[in-house]
């Protein structure tokens, strides 16, 4: 077991984890934050995306020990049912989630984009989410949902 210190959604967490434990396992199983999904466990689908120091990262390919001292944000950390993030509201309004399985990762990826570029073009949004698979929507409603919360559209 290795000691690690993580900041998860603003709270400092001190844990002992086996060295091979992935951040996906830590977030879901040790911390109970099941909003982060596993779709393939091989870095192919993007459903496990979390933000590490503001950058979207595949948590299934990240060892928890390598995330020590990093700031991690999961879907639970950006908004709630009563105070949703504008992206979370926008996804519903635009029908950007159907089964909802890719949605948390998609929203986090979009948030990271908007945090560094508040007015991305549609092409930029598409490039940003190109690593996140969605099997239900055909992506178009996702592009609309993100475009609706750019700075100039707010």
């Amino acid at each position: 077991m290795e000691p690690v210190t993580l900041t998860v959604n603003g709270a400092t967490r001190r844990l002992f984890v086996p060295p091979q434990r992935t951040l996906l396992e830590t977030v879901r199983e040790d911390l109970g934050l099941t909003g982060t999904k596993h779709g393939c466990e091989l870095g192919e689908c993007g459903a496990c995306t979390v933000l590490i120091d503001g950058v979207p990262i595949l948590s299934c390919l990240t060892l928890t020990v390598n995330a020590t001292d990093c700031e991690i944000v999961t879907i639970e950390g950006i908004g709630s049912m009563t105070e949703p993030h504008p992206l979370q509201r926008s996804f519903g309004e635009h029908g950007a989630a159907q089964c909802g399985y890719c949605t948390p990762a998609m929203i986090l990826t979009a948030k990271a984009l908007l945090d560094r570029d508040p007015n991305p073009s549609e092409e930029t949004i598409a490039e940003a989410i190109a690593g996140n698979m969605c099997r239900c929507t055909g992506y178009l409603s996702i592009l609309s949902a993100v475009a609706a919360v750019t700075e100039e559209n707010q």
């Binding site: 999961t74 029908g95 909802g100 948390p104």
Partner: peptide
């Protein structure tokens, strides 16, 4: 929106 839209978008759906 879907009736479960916010639950989906906030990661609450189990």
């Amino acid at each position: 929106p879907r009736v479960d839209a916010l639950a989906q978008a906030t990661g609450r759906v189990k």
